[in-house]
């Protein structure tokens, strides 16, 4: 692949100011997304998945600050873009859908009006034209009886339906990149399957790249070609999904896989991951933040900064942030 990636995040570090001192929420996070590609960012709560998405979108909490790094979208440096440039791009070039769809929608405006707002902002569509496009979008996300639903308020819709509206909003201006932050957490399995299938189908038909943020490795495996595993603000492993599952190289990925329930596994077969996330306020955080939970850790892991080991593979390169990676049989 020689074409530059659509989204390239390089050495991104984000720190949050808190009363208890600065929290190093992200440290040297790097990954890339090609045009039309679907990747997943997987990790436990507190691993920095959502902060990564917020930093890319330019919607970090005011307490958070990008200390260093680059975020290139289609060749443009998003971290240097002005607020108005970013506002022009958000929703048109890249869009995001959030967890808790009911909370993300405006409760006192009809869903039709909310979709029309996006169209008015980016495509200067008004009145009947905007309404028609809004209805098309609702039909696209398979909402039954879209004409009637245009005048519905979020509280009149079910959780799955609100998430469909969120997708319609995000896709109204045909963005090239969609970031979906836990889009199906809190939804039923049948709804989850329908929403994920819908995102996949629309992504394929529109050549849209998708970043799926999830804590569910099973869901990531099913829908994404490549998986980025995060732990305590580090990207610990980045690999094609099939290889990651067949032969994880970072001990954390291996432990995460061993803890995930899967068909054919019994409770005795599953293993818990000992310990918890390190305190990210510590000044002397070791280069490996998994150190204290790892049974392979040694002195080299304490180095102040580690560099990811990059290995080429037929389906794209693999990166692992570990000085003693597991050497399983690579597929």
């Amino acid at each position: 692949m020689t074409a530059p990636p659509l989204l390239a995040v390089g050495d991104l570090s984000v720190t949050f100011r808190t009363r208890a001192g600065p929290v190093k929420a992200l440290e040297r996070v790097s990954f890339a997304v090609d045009k039309g590609e679907t990747i997943a960012i997987v990790g436990e709560s507190g691993s920095g998945k959502s902060v990564t998405a917020q930093a890319i979108m330019g919607i970090l909490d005011p307490a958070g600050r990008v200390e260093a790094g680059r975020v290139y979208f289609a060749g443009l440096d998003l971290l240097r873009a002005s607020a108005s440039e970013l506002a022009d791009m958000r929703g048109r070039e890249f869009a995001m859908i959030f967890q808790n769809p009911r909370g993300a929608l405006n409760p006192i405006r009809t869903v039709g009006d909310q979709i029309a707002d996006v169209l008015a902002r980016h495509e200067h569509l008004k009145g009947a034209a905007a309404r028609d496009r809004a209805m098309e979008m609702l039909a696209l996300v398979k909402i039954t009886d879209p004409r009637r639903r245009l005048d519905a308020y979020p509280f009149e819709l079910s959780g799955g339906m609100c998430q469909r509206v969120m997708i319609a909003l995000a896709l109204a201006c045909r963005p090239a990149l969609l970031i979906a932050d836990e889009p199906t957490t809190g939804l039923d399995v049948t709804t989850q399957a329908a929403i994920m299938d819908l995102i996949g189908e629309l992504g394929r038909s529109r050549g849209m790249a998708t970043v799926l943020i999830t804590h569910d490795l099973g869901l990531a495996a099913e829908h994404c070609g490549r998986i980025v595993v995060m732990h305590a603000g580090h990207v610990v492993e980045d690999a094609p999904a099939a290889q990651l599952f067949a032969a994880p190289r970072h001990p954390y990925t291996a432990k995460l896989l061993a803890a995930t329930p899967r068909p054919g596994r019994h409770l005795e077969d599953l293993e818990a991951i000992p310990g918890g996330l390190p305190d990210l306020r510590r000044a002397d955080l070791p280069g490996c933040r998994f150190l204290e939970r790892c049974d392979r850790a040694g002195e080299p892991c304490r180095a102040p900064a580690l560099d990811a080991i990059v290995t080429p593979s037929p389906d794209g390169e693999r990166r692992v942030l570990c000085v003693r990676p597991l050497m399983g049989l690579a597929a």
């Binding site: 039954t144 079910s158 339906m161 399995v189 049948t190 989850q192 399957a193 329908a194 299938d197 569910d216 490795l217 099973g218 869901l219 495996a221 099913e222 829908h223 999904a241 099939a242 990651l244 599952f245 995930t260 899967r262 068909p263």
Partner: peptide, 24 residues
């Protein structure tokens, strides 16, 4: 059956044969 078909396979690249539930 629809419920079971919606559970992610947990295997990269394999989507189970879904039974779609239409309507509300």
């Amino acid at each position: 059956r629809a419920l079971l078909s919606a559970v992610p396979s947990g295997v990269p690249g394999r989507t189970p044969q879904r039974i779609q539930l239409s309507g509300d």
